[in-house]
């Protein structure tokens, strides 16, 4: 008897091939809806720290595609964790696993429904991990998710993490995107 999760989740893998459009590089790996099947998958795939630069993993609720354009993402945003190069060895895998456990374990109390998924970007210039939520206007939900997430990652008070609207990320880039919330 396996332990059912509240949601069915889909793991996606993105591998950068500059000759192809973005969406052609995105692959659905598998779906799962039990604790046991999550671990069978997690134990089978590469750790994020061992992926080639330019690759992403995304874990989203079933039916939500890991892109801004999806109906359930387009009004939303993300709590973004940016990591230094040094953190890849020490913290990247640990932070990503903690992110996954927050998602599948439904760690956000009354606001789990606001969570769409999470993305990890492995990049030479610095890795990123983010939890995506569905509506930037749901301030209580966004802030609760951010505070809980920061606690679960064990980030100290002095570290500030920011929440950015996808609509802003899509039109601006890099440091031009301003935080809608911080915790």
């Amino acid at each position: 008897m396996k332990h059912p999760l509240q949601n069915r989740w889909t793991l996606w893998f993105y591998k950068n091939d500059k000759t192809k459009p973005w969406q052609a590089n995105l692959r659905l790996v598998t779906k799962f809806d039990t604790v046991e099947d999550f671990w069978a998958l997690y134990n089978h795939i590469q750790l994020a720290s061992r992926l080639m630069s330019g690759c992403d993993y995304s874990l989203f609720k079933d039916g939500i595609e890991p892109m801004w354009e999806d109906n359930r993402n387009k009004c939303g945003g993300r709590w973004l964790i940016t990591l230094s190069k040094q953190q890849r060895m020490l913290e990247l895998d640990q932070f990503w696993l903690e992110t996954l456990l927050c998602l599948i374990g439904e760690a956000f109390d009354d606001y789990n429904n606001d969570v769409c998924g999470a993305v990890i970007n492995v990049r030479a210039k610095g890795d990123k991990i983010a939890i995506w939520t569905r509506d930037t206007e749901n301030q209580k939900a966004v802030l609760h998710i951010g505070k809980t997430y920061k606690e679960r990652l064990g980030l100290p008070m002095r570290i500030v993490i920011g929440y950015q609207a996808h609509a802003d990320t899509a039109t601006k880039s890099g440091f031009g995107v301003k935080n809608k919330f911080v915790v």
Binding site: E36, W39, G105, N112
Partner: peptide, 20 residues
């Protein structure tokens, strides 16, 4: 009911899953 699992509970299954 809602199925919520804390991290220790989830972590407890990592290697049980691998051995089955």
């Amino acid at each position: 009911g809602k199925k919520r699992y804390d991290r220790e509970f989830l972590l407890g299954f990592q290697f049980i899953a691998a051995s089955t």
